[in-house]
Structure formats: structure tokens, C-alpha cells
């Protein structure tokens, strides 16, 4: 899988269109984005004599052999050390910044909803769409490894939805979101929910360009999730403790869970609710309403440097 946008091999990403038809990969013309092209170069490459490539990309010139780079041992005899100092998530972060600008320019608020599989993200979204019908214009982008089951549930509410199937991929990245945004074409001023792949690990590292990150955990999962998956809770703007209707039947200490989450992320909002019964939904709907549309708050949320916002 291409690390930039998920395309390019057998297990490539598939993005549906609005009626649910799945396309393997959108043509490049429909979603222009750059790829670092795989080398090797086709030019002759004789090693029998010394040679210099004209190779000026604006990066620091190769140092002469034996010159120590800060913090590194000198290159071995006959070898050249090239300084790069490049963030490995730089490409994703660049695409995320573009998405953020695209969304802000249209006054669209976008929530990246993350959880482990089965925490109730889709149930929460279906109920949210129904309760906010007539108040907010909502669109959804669904991420799963396979199937359009979640997108079908959203489509039954009558709202537009795009399904991304990541194949072997364990998270959505900014390139996938870029293509899904092209397919969804959300209305200016609308609200977008991005349901990430069910996974409490990898999605935390990949900025999509969202306005806020919502992490859902359910009371059947155990109250130690923040300790076990700290990166996810560090990345969260809001933690929703779902399936609160099951609290009488499970050993889940809400206070302990909240305390652990706030030890990691002192400013994080926490809400306890049941998307099935509707108890506590008011707080969530109020949180959505209070979260400003980008048009009202031009700065938006700060991008995560290196994928994490601490």
C-alpha cells in the first residue's frame, strides 16, 4: 500500500460513490495528488569512475566523506552522508493541512470519530443524525477494512455517505480523506463525521485535517483503556463513554476512567451516554453545537505535529 494515500497495490483502498458503488482507486485526474515516484533512474550508472550527479533539490549539499553530521558518526571511507532531517509523517501532515484548508474554506466542521471495533460509533452517528435532522446538514465518511455495512446503516437515515475500504490498512490517512471528500462533495456550512477504522492504536497518529477528534469507548471494554492506549487519548478533544445503559452489569468505574484520561490529557472533555437508549445524548449534541464551524473560528484546531497533539 502506498504510504501516502493507500493506493497502488492489490490490497489498495477503495472509495465508494454516493450510491454505494465501489471504485478501486479514483483516477489521478479526479483527485490530483503528488507521489514521490519510485526510482531507480533510467540513466546509465557506471561505477567504474568517479562521477557527480547534477542533483539539486534544494536540500543540503552532500557532505564530504569523513565530515561528521551533528550527532552522527562520520560516513565511512568513500561514502557520503546526506542530511535529511525530515519528519516521516510529513506527507500525511501536508495532505491533512490541505484538507483542513479545504474544509475551512467551505465552513465545514469535521469530526474524526475513533474507537476500538464495536464501541458503538455507527450507532452513535445514526442516532446523532436523526436527532439533529432539520438542524444541521450532516454528511458521513465511513472507514472500514472491508464491507459497506456501516455506510448502509448511515444511508438508511437519508444522509449522504462515502465508504472507504482500506483493505489491509488499519487506519484512515489524509490522502484517503482527500479522495473521499472529492466523492462526497459536502455542502458548504455542513457537518462532517469521519468514522475511522475501528482501532485504538494507529488512527491516533494520522492527522486527517479534522476540526476535532472524538474518541469513543464503551463500558464493556474496561475502564483501563486510557492507560493501555495512551496515544489515542492524548489525541482526543472529546472522550465519549458509550453504552452507559450497561453500567449496572459490568465492572466499569467511570470516575477511574475519566481520571486516567485526564492524567494523559488534562483538558479533554468527557461525556457519558448511551447511544442505544439516548440517555446523555443531549450533552453530545450540545458539544457538537458549541464546536464552532470554521467560518466562525478561522483558526480552526491546531494541526498535530508529527501526528500527535500533546
Amino acid at each position: 500500500m502506498c504510504a501516502t494515500c493507500g493506493c497502488g497495490d492489490d490490497a489498495g483502498t477503495r472509495v465508494s460513490d454516493l450510491d454505494g458503488t465501489v471504485h478501486d482507486i479514483l483516477p489521478a485526474a479526479a483527485a490530483p495528488h503528488e507521489h514521490p515516484h519510485p526510482h531507480p533512474h533510467e540513466h546509465p550508472h557506471d561505477h567504474g569512475h568517479p562521477h557527480d550527479h547534477e542533483h539539486d533539490h534544494g536540500h543540503p549539499r552532500p557532505q564530504s566523506p569523513g565530515t561528521a553530521d551533528a550527532g552522527h558518526s562520520p560516513a565511512a571511507e568513500g561514502r557520503t552522508l546526506i542530511s535529511l532531517e525530515e519528519n516521516l509523517l510529513a506527507k500525511n501532515d501536508l495532505l491533512a493541512a490541505r484538507n483542513r484548508g479545504w474544509l475551512e474554506g467551505r465552513g465545514i466542521q469535521a469530526f474524526n470519530v475513533m474507537s476500538s471495533p464495536g464501541a458503538g460509533k455507527t450507532t452513535l452517528l445514526v442516532r446523532t443524525i436523526r436527532e439533529l435532522a432539520g438542524e444541521l446538514v450532516i454528511g458521513v465518511i465511513e472507514g472500514d477494512q472491508e464491507t459497506s455495512l456501516d455506510a448502509d446503516r448511515i444511508r438508511s437515515t437519508g444522509r449522504p455517505v462515502i465508504q472507504i475500504n482500506t483493505g489491509a490498512g488499519c487506519h484512515l490517512d489524509a490522502g484517503m480523506l482527500q479522495r473521499a471528500l472529492g466523492a462526497l462533495d459536502p455542502v458548504p456550512g455542513s457537518t462532517l463525521f469521519i468514522e475511522n477504522v475501528g482501532n485504538l492504536v494507529c488512527p491516533a497518529l494520522f492527522d486527517l485535517g479534522e476540526s476535532a477528534r472524538v474518541v469513543v469507548i464503551s463500558v464493556t471494554e474496561g475502564d483501563d483503556k486510557p492507560q493501555k492506549y495512551p496515544h489515542m487519548f492524548l489525541a482526543a478533544d472529546l472522550v465519549i463513554i458509550n453504552k452507559a445503559d450497561l453500567l449496572p452489569y459490568v465492572e466499569f468505574d467511570v470516575e477511574r476512567c475519566v481520571r486516567q484520561a485526564r492524567l494523559l490529557n488534562p483538558g479533554v472533555d468527557v461525556l457519558t451516554l448511551s447511544a442505544t437508549t439516548g440517555d446523555g445524548m443531549d450533552g453530545w449534541l450540545e458539544w457538537i453545537r458549541k464546536n464552532p464551524h470554521p467560518a466562525a473560528a478561522a483558526a480552526g484546531s491546531a494541526p498535530r505535529s508529527g501526528g500527535l497533539r500533546v
Binding site: P36, H43, H45, I82, L88
Partner: peptide, 16 residues
Amino acid sequence: SITQSLVEAVLDRTGG
């Protein structure tokens, strides 16, 4: 996927 980014970033700078 991060390692794939790494290899692409390096190839981008070092050519063949």
C-alpha cells in the same frame, strides 16, 4: 506504512 514513507523519502533524495 511509516516505513514505506521512509523508503520513499530517502529514494526521493538519493535517486538510484
